[in-house]
């Protein structure tokens, strides 16, 4: 990216974007612009199209209409200016990779040729491991690490070549509170120090409430976008869901009550069966 774009344009722009599958519209007429260093939370019930939105930005899912632009040009698949942390998948035990190898894939995993490290790559991996606080378990097999530890590694992998945009698909799922805080602070620090824009899909806004600049709330084929104070309000969400929803705030936390049953914020869909049992407890 050259300096001109850096100053002026948005990192990411969605213009009048629409996507649906079959009869069903996930969202339509979506406009969103994300500036450098902005932290945007994407909220919404299961199946509202949050993952699909990220896939669109990744260039892996074509829009039905509208445009998606990264740094002014249409998004394309395999763009290394984007870092991606997928909806959590645990690495199966027995996978022949150590923690540092997972991070190293972010640095050179796309490169063909004899699998020998180039100069400086080892240091880069070491640096990334230190950034995400994973140095102490760098040589352990990935499959033997906890969900939180693996998630830190995925963050490290995604940051490998200083992305301008970081896409995180429920990176806090199945983490305990301490790890939720650890991982979200990691990502927050990143965007503060390096001006990386962040699109952060989450079911629970509370762990990142004090960090987000804006919220994109998807539900029932519609969306609302704005600051947390603008979006997380009873009348706004009631309109979005088409039924009465209450929003309570206490001690800096937000509690949403009355989300229709069919759209609960439960966690147990869309996960491959080969995950470790009990991982979502």
């Amino acid at each position: 990216m050259d300096d001109e774009q850096r100053e002026g344009g948005d990192v990411l722009r969605l213009e009048n974007a629409s996507l649906g599958f079959g009869e069903r519209t996930l969202w339509s007429g979506l406009d969103l612009s994300v500036k450098r260093g902005e932290f945007i939370a994407v909220l919404g019930p299961n199946g509202s199209g949050k993952t699909s939105l990220l896939k669109t930005v990744l260039g892996q899912q074509a829009l039905d209409s509208g445009r998606a632009l990264l740094g002014g040009a249409p998004v394309r698949s395999g763009d290394r200016r984007i870092g991606y942390i997928p909806q959590q998948k645990l690495v199966p035990p027995g996978t022949p990779l150590r923690a540092r190898d997972l991070v190293a894939l972010g640095v050179n995993g796309h490169r063909f040729g004899l699998p020998l490290p180039r100069r400086g790559e080892r240091e880069r991996v070491e640096e990334l491991l230190a950034d995400v606080g994973a140095t102490s378990y760098a040589d352990r097999p990935v499959g033997s690490l906890s969900g939180g530890e693996q998630q830190r590694l995925r963050v490290g992998q995604a940051l490998a070549d200083d992305p301008v945009l970081l896409l995180c698909d429920e990176p806090l799922l199945s983490l305990d509170l301490a790890h939720q805080r650890g991982v979200s602070e990691l990502i927050d620090r990143r965007r503060r120090e390096h001006d990386t824009a962040v699109l952060f899909v989450t079911h629970d806004i509370n762990p990142v409430l004090d960090k987000v600049d804006r919220i994109l709330y998807l539900a029932g084929g519609r969306f609302r976008e704005g600051t947390p104070d603008e979006v997380l309000r009873g009348e706004v969400l009631s309109e979005l869901y088409g039924s009465p929803v209450d929003v309570f705030r206490s001690h800096g936390r937000v509690v949403v009550v009355g989300v229709p049953d069919a759209q609960t914020h439960a966690h147990h869909t869309h996960h491959p069966p080969d995950e470790r049992p009990g991982a979502h407890a």
Binding site: L58, Q60, G78, D79, R80, P86
Partner: peptide, 9 residues
């Protein structure tokens, strides 16, 4: 998925 996002064909 991640590999594709990171430029692996």
């Amino acid at each position: 998925d991640v590999a594709a996002a990171r430029g692996v064909p």
